[in-house]
Design a protein around this nucleic acid. Sequence first.
DNA 1: CAATGGAGTTAATTAACGTTAACTTACAGG
DNA 2: CCTGTAAGTTAACGTTAATTAACTCCATTG
Lengths: 209, 209
Amino acid sequence: MSHTDAPAATPRRDQIRREAARLFAARGFLGVGVDEIGKAVGITGPGLYRHFPGKDAMLADLLVGISERLVDEGRRRAQGADAAAALDALVRGHIDFALDDQDLITLHDRELLHLKDEDRRRVRRLQRSYVELWVDVVRRAFPEPSGLAGEPGARAAVHAVFGLLNSTPHSAAARGAQPVLDRDSMAALLHRLALGAFSAAAGTAGHDR
Amino acid sequence: MSHTDAPAATPRRDQIRREAARLFAARGFLGVGVDEIGKAVGITGPGLYRHFPGKDAMLADLLVGISERLVDEGRRRAQGADAAAALDALVRGHIDFALDDQDLITLHDRELLHLKDEDRRRVRRLQRSYVELWVDVVRRAFPEPSGLAGEPGARAAVHAVFGLLNSTPHSAAARGAQPVLDRDSMAALLHRLALGAFSAAAGTAGHDR
DNA sequence: CAATGGAGTTAATTAACGTTAACTTACAGG
DNA sequence: CCTGTAAGTTAACGTTAATTAACTCCATTG
């Protein structure tokens, strides 16, 4: 009741969410004016204030939303005794997000700094939970005599693999008419890249150089 | 002569470059004012105009600079007949950039959209050259019956590995007092993750699912 | 010693943007 | 039919930010 109140999902509000996400991803939060967002949904700028208390609130809504969905879906997939299977499920789930919600994935780690302190703390907490989820699974999947059994190493590897999986928007940025990979091929490729990265990092720590 | 003229490296200008990069990385290009940049180097905002023609020009200078350095250093490292050795050298070189110039790596793929068309085209060209460099080496390092022999697959994999290597700023964002990895451990970890990713993606295309 | 130009300063200009106010319209319910 | 409310509109307000103008201050140099 004290924090930013619940979202509520009317059709108009959902439309605003979609268009705002698209515009923020394309030109940055500060680079988009409320008039522009309004125009994208067929109303004037100030009309948006019937649906959101302000521009900041739209961004907060988007980032909290995607963060919660990531954690919820992640928790669902991480359970079960078999750590290798859990990791596989986490990777697949994240790939789905990265491919289906490119705009949100882009905003998620780019516009965090434009949130008001309270909202930023909230999103950070959720992001931290999501990372913890992965770190635990990774450490169980690659136990003791491995390069990923330790906290800091596993954490850094997880961050790095997030960077890898979230790279889709950058690949797609070269869109136009090129013969890019179709969704399934891209998903399969990302899956192999991610698991291959973890396996190699887990392998005996000293075969580089 | 028609495009943005040559940089020229006076001490003051270099100082401005450093501080501007730091501030842009921390709060975004549109989120920092010229007065703030001025203050960081000990002068007032308008004083900056003796050294750069405008705020846009500072960003352009930074992005063109890092892009050129990446391509130059990349070309140097990619030469030689042994494709595997060349790939290894490219990875090591990129890791050095990612660890030593975190601010610039952050800006490099985040603030591109705030450049004027002409500068953006120029940076895009350089980035494309850099990707080409990697794609060629990857395809030679993992030839025909491999998942990375084809153009689109190799290109997507390279983008993904860039995302992985450029993840350092995000890891470091959790800075504070945590026992993060020291530079050498981080470099070694990233190296294993990157090469492991490529190897796994190259391996026979159908062992997932 | 005069003059020139680089490096700053403060003040003014201009444009844009988020938000609020006041007013309109359409429709749902008693 | 009347009334209230949700969802818009246009106009106005207050701020902020980039850039330019006009002016000082030195340090060099002819």
